[in-house]
Design a protein around this nucleic acid. Structure first.
Length: 824
RNA sequence: GCGAGAGUGGCGGAAUUGGCAGACGCACCAGACUUAGGAUCUGGCUCCUCACGGAAUAGGGGUUCAAGUCCCCUCUCUCGCACCA
């Protein structure tokens, strides 16, 4: 054994061994329990960053731990490889996105291998591989045939810098989630997935996801945004039609005194009287422009304009003026709101501003509201008033009663409304999966026939950065014949949102080479669902909601039988340095390469696991890394030092140990117990590692290491340290295990179990409190009688002075823990 | 504004069920070995106090023999949502 720990030599050796033996290849094996472990796959941006190191180190601990426990572990890795940075790089370097992407993948794959992560590399996939995206095209067409993929013209979020459409989820603070440019509104024909068909199931199933963090589920539930209420028709005064509203407050219907429409409402301009027309048109224009910048801006003043038309409140028959209002959103509900200023704060402000009538229909108990003196809307519970036959009811009951009444009268009906919108997947970019349809002047949209699939991305596109989608300028691609009528037609040039690819890659990993379809059902059933998924919290809604949706769609298309893809979700925190997220502009980036070169992968892994529990942000500290490195060196030296004496040691004979040796052995087994629990039940790797450090300190403090009667205990202790460290620092542990003379690898050795008899304490410390303050301690046998301990506590030399001249009111005894004496 | 989470030494963090607050590591201090130390080893290290002891888990109140942990109020920070009718 080398005296000095040389990480590069050790790591090279074992990485070579693992590659050569395909140590992490996963095969279906019904005789063993399966465990599918997955970390979110990276975008091949060029090189890995510390966030990746952390994410994948966490995953690797679990993978290796589960393997040592005997599970059949599937642990795959791949590349989320389509997307704009590749296209931007192509423009800059006058190159091709494919070249850039595959070069990055090659480099980053090398980096991941350098970290010693235990992936089954035979399952590696890149979403830009034809062999991946062609199957997605097939899924798309099946969705199209079922009406789950459709084309519609709509106002979309448009990023002027990326020159592409963004889903609502991809707009953050009115800006593009990727490049941060202000998002504009634009009317465009685009493809969508009908995720709203699954809104209810996506919501319901959040309650089955008991292994997910509550805040992720809350975010998804809020995003889906289910609310129950009524749709109510308000006839126009002129008798020419009606306005449909959605409300959750049908109990306030009798108090509706005016109507507010979104500026984009289809009737907005039609309703304008001649006198109001100019003003209405100007308002619509203004709102649309505001929209572009930031309609959701804080405290945007409520503004509106009278259309000049009226509708009729269907239950009171009063005339209600129709306004356009800037706070009414076209894409929620029906784009029209019945305004009840007395019981809705927005309507209240609007009514005060434009002098509209107020009518109280809910009175708080023991109080009478007067519309003339109200300073804000009353939105809480109360008793119905001015509401005809519903007067006197509690408003909660009236909600139900009025809904029934509306249905009976044919004025309205109960409905459920969701905030969730359909998922717009069209992107006007080249580097994505081409949507496999053809636009024919005669036949309209025609699906590409299955025999003509796949639609291959042409390699001869030009990347100039100008003129929008490069794909649209490749004539050989766009020009085609209509499969239906045979006339010349134009191929669709929109590509799919990259979130589509990441919505089913975890399924494809189960049968990555399957050539008869996207998924081999048998394999999928063998591995799915993912037992543990690990990734950043930033995907709480986007990726994780889409992936859940897609899984359900694939289930309904008959590809799998899974309802939910991820049984357990771990959202790891960010890597922070000097109080900020690592970024080039802050100059606080730590380069994994430099770290590995200087300390080795094991130290990099160890520190990123030790510095904080996985779900918390990790504060990077260069000195902390030194500490982790020192620890490994200490363990190496310990093994080096004791190796000559423990080489021939047999197994421990617990009955023949001296007191000190017994104590060491107890520490060993207690540590095994604690590390097992910390890793298995809590993923608290920081405390697990701390426990091993304590054990190492204890071994070092154990004086008579080389006494013949102790060598077996020392060997057991040292070997336990090595085995317990295996998931965290795999190369390091494997090498020491080898040096300790083992012919087989650590995985074969398995995760150590603890000896229940060895962890039992020979004596326990019982603390003695007087009036809640710690005054003394007793050392007693674990099976000491309660009376004895109580008596000893009261007779204790340090306790006596506190009892003198006082009454002992009460003595509380907690077995094996403490005696609490209350005196007065 | 609404919702969720957090606040513990100089720092990262422990304390799993209400039972010895500060495990483990970093930094720092002292000592040993040493030509030397950014290596290694030993010891110290919350604050106040010479000490006995006392105080302390953002602040205030409460429950309890006992509170970092449970309850109420206030403050601060982080994240998510933000006119969703």
């Amino acid at each position: 054994m080398e005296e000095k720990y040389v990480p590069s030599a050790v790591e090279e050796k074992w990485q070579g061994y693992w590659a050569e033996h395909k140590s992490f290849k996963a095969n279906e094996d019904p005789s063993r329990k399966k465990y599918y472990l997955l970390e979110m796959f990276p975008y091949p941006s060029g090189k890995i960053h510390m966030g990746h190191v952390r994410n994948y180190s966490i995953g690797d601990v679990i993978a290796r731990f589960k393997r040592m426990q005997g599970y059949n572990v599937l642990h795959p890795m791949g590349w989320d490889a389509f997307g704009m940075p590749a296209e931007n790089a192509a423009i800059q370097n006058k190159s091709h996105p494919a070249k850039w992407t595959y070069e990055n993948i090659a480099y980053m794959r090398g980096q991941l291998k350098t970290l010693g992560l235990s992936y089954d590399w035979d399952r590696e996939l890149a979403t830009c591989d034809l062999d991946y995206y062609k199957w997605e095209q097939r899924i798309f067409l099946e969705m199209y045939k079922k009406g789950l993929a459709y084309k519609k013209s709509s106002a979309v979020n448009w990023c002027p810098k990326c020159e592409t459409v963004l889903a609502n989820e991809q707009v953050e603070d009115g800006c593009c989630w990727r490049c941060d440019s202000p998002v504009q509104q634009k009317e465009l024909e685009q493809w969508s997935f009908r995720i709203t068909n699954y809104a209810q199931e996506l919501l319901d199933d959040t309650y089955k996801l008991t292994g997910w963090p509550e805040r992720v589920l809350t975010m998804q539930r809020n995003w889906i945004g289910r609310s129950t209420g009524c749709e109510i028709d308000f006839p126009l005064e002129n008798g020419l039609g009606k306005i449909k509203v959605f409300t959750t407050r049908q109990d306030t219907l009798f108090g509706a005194t005016f109507m507010s429409l979104a500026a984009e409402h289809p009737l907005a301009l039609d309703l304008a009287s001649d006198a109001q027309r100019a003003e209405v048109a100007a308002f619509i224009d203004k709102v649309k422009k505001t929209d572009r910048i930031k309609r959701g801006a804080e405290d945007l003043e409520k503004e509106g304009v009278f259309t000049g038309s009226y509708c009729i409140n269907p239950v009171t028959s009063t005339k209600m003026p129709i306004y356009l209002a800037n706070f009414v959103l076209m894409d929620y509900g029906t784009g029209a709101v019945m305004a009840v200023p007395t019981h809705d704060q927005r309507d209240f402000e609007f009514a005060r501003k434009y002098n509209l009538p107020l009518k109280v229909v809910i009175q708080p108990e023991g109080e009478t509201l007067d519309p003339a003196t109200m300073t804000e809307a009353y939105t809480a519970e109360g008793i119905m008033a001015n509401s005809g036959r519903f007067d006197g009811m509690g408003n909660a009951d009236a909600k139900e009663a009025i809904a029934d009444f509306l249905e009976k009268e044919g004025i309205g009906k109960k409905t459920v409304n969701f905030r969730l919108r359909d998922w717009g997947i069209s992107r006007q970019r080249y580097w994505g999966n081409p949507i496999p349809v053809i636009n024919c002047d005669l036949c309209g949209v025609v699906a590409v026939p299955e025999a003509d699939l796949p639609v291959v991305l042409p390699m001869d596109a030009e990347f100039t950065g100008e003129g929008g989608n490069p794909l649209a300028r490749v004539d050989s691609f766009t020009t085609c014949t209509c499969p239906q009528c045979g006339e010349t037609a134009r191929r669709e040039t929109d590509t799919m949102d990259t979130f589509v690819q990441s919505s089913w890659y975890f399924l494809r990993y189960c049968s990555p080479k399957f050539s008869a379809g996207p998924l081999d059902r048998e394999k999928v059933e063998a591995w799915m669902p993912v037992d543990q998924y690990i990734g950043g919290i930033e995907h709480a809604v986007l990726h994780l909601l889409y992936a859940r949706f897609f899984t359900k769609v694939l289930r309904d298309l008959g590809y799998c039988n899974v309802d939910e893809p991820f049984s357990n979700l771990l959202t790891q925190g960010m890597v922070i340095k000097d109080g900020a997220k690592m970024s080039k502009s802050k100059g606080n980036v730590v380069d994994p390469n430099a770290l590995i070169e200087r300390y080795g992968a094991d130290t990099a892994r160890l520190f990123s696991l030790f510095a904080a529990p996985p779900e918390k942000d990790l504060d990077w500290s260069d000195q902390g890394v030194d500490g982790s490195y020192r620890f490994l060196n200490r363990v190496w030296r310990l093994v080096y030092d004791v190796l000559p004496v423990i080489g021939e040691a047999g197994s421990v004979n617990p009955g023949e140990l001296g007191a000190e040796a017994k104590k060491l052995r107890r520490a060993v087994h207690k540590t095994i117990k604690k590390v097992s629990e910390d890793v298995e039940e809590r993923f608290h790797f920081n405390t697990a590692i701390a426990a091993v450090m304590e054990l190492v300190n204890a071994i070092q403090a154990f004086a008579a290491k080389d006494a013949p009667e102790n060598v077996a205990v020392v060997r057991e202790a040292v070997e336990s340290v090595v085995r317990l460290l295996a998931p965290f620092v795999p190369h390091f542990a494997e090498e020491l295990w080898f040096q300790l003379g083992h012919a087989s690898v650590l995985e074969a050795a398995g995760w150590p179990g603890y000896d229940a008899a060895a962890v039992v304490d020979e004596e326990v410390t019982v603390v003695i409190q007087v009036n809640g303050k710690l005054r003394s301690k007793l050392t007693v046998a674990p099976d000491a009688k309660e009376e004895e301990i109580r008596a000893q506590a009261l007779a204790d030399d340090k306790i006596k002075p506190y009892l003198e001249g006082k009454d002992v009111k009460k003595v509380v005894y907690v077995p094996g823990k403490l005696v609490s004496i209350v005196v007065a």
